[in-house]
């Protein structure tokens, strides 16, 4: 596969977000749409991730989060994330992105201060993990564009059920 310049990607993402804002005229709705689009991308991207990285089944959520942060982000965004702030049960963690190529040229105007510009990434993670039977919630809690010092995504495992035949949940 040929690659394209990262700038084209960043600019394309920017114009897409801009178009969503024009179409929906509501920041909350745009956040929601970005997440939804990301979800569909994630559902498809996960197979590429598995095929190219030769990843085996993860034993637990911790391992899955590490894989997303270290291998996934490297593969698709050429950056990595740190996994920190685990809760005691091992069901919630934070992904800290040092570098976010989506926002290279971006400054948020005041009127759009509530925009979660990179929310697509949350959707991608949610969609990808859903395909390997982990239901997660993923949201940006810190965003450099909103004045924080890093990008932080909070990842929360809701349920994980091996959904293989013969299905057990139909009784």
């Amino acid at each position: 596969m040929e690659t394209i310049s990262a700038e084209i990607f960043t600019l394309t993402y920017g114009s897409m977000v801009r178009q969503l804002i024009a179409d929906y005229e509501d920041v909350e709705e745009v956040n929601k749409q970005l997440d939804k689009m990301g979800f569909s991308i994630g559902q498809r991207l996960i197979d590429e991730f598995l095929a190219k990285s030769k990843t085996q089944r993860c034993s637990d959520f911790r391992e899955a989060a590490e894989k997303v942060a270290k291998v996934g982000f490297r593969m698709f965004l050429n950056t990595t994330a740190a996994v920190t702030n685990w809760n005691a049960e091992g069901t919630e963690c934070s992904l800290i992105l040092e570098d976010n190529p989506l926002t290279d040229f971006v400054e948020l105007p005041e009127a759009l201060s509530q925009l979660k510009y990179s929310n697509l990434l949350c959707g991608v993670i949610r969609g990808a993990l859903e395909m390997v039977n982990m239901d997660v919630e993923c949201t940006f809690v810190r965003d450099v564009l909103q004045g924080d010092d890093v990008y932080e995504m909070r990842l929360k495992l809701l349920s994980s059920s091996p959904e293989t035949y013969p299905f057990k949940d139909d009784d």
């Binding site: 197979d47 598995l50 395909m131 293989t164």
Partner: peptide, 8 residues
Amino acid sequence: SFHTLTGT
């Protein structure tokens, strides 16, 4: 037979 982690 190859069963992917995503179920295909």
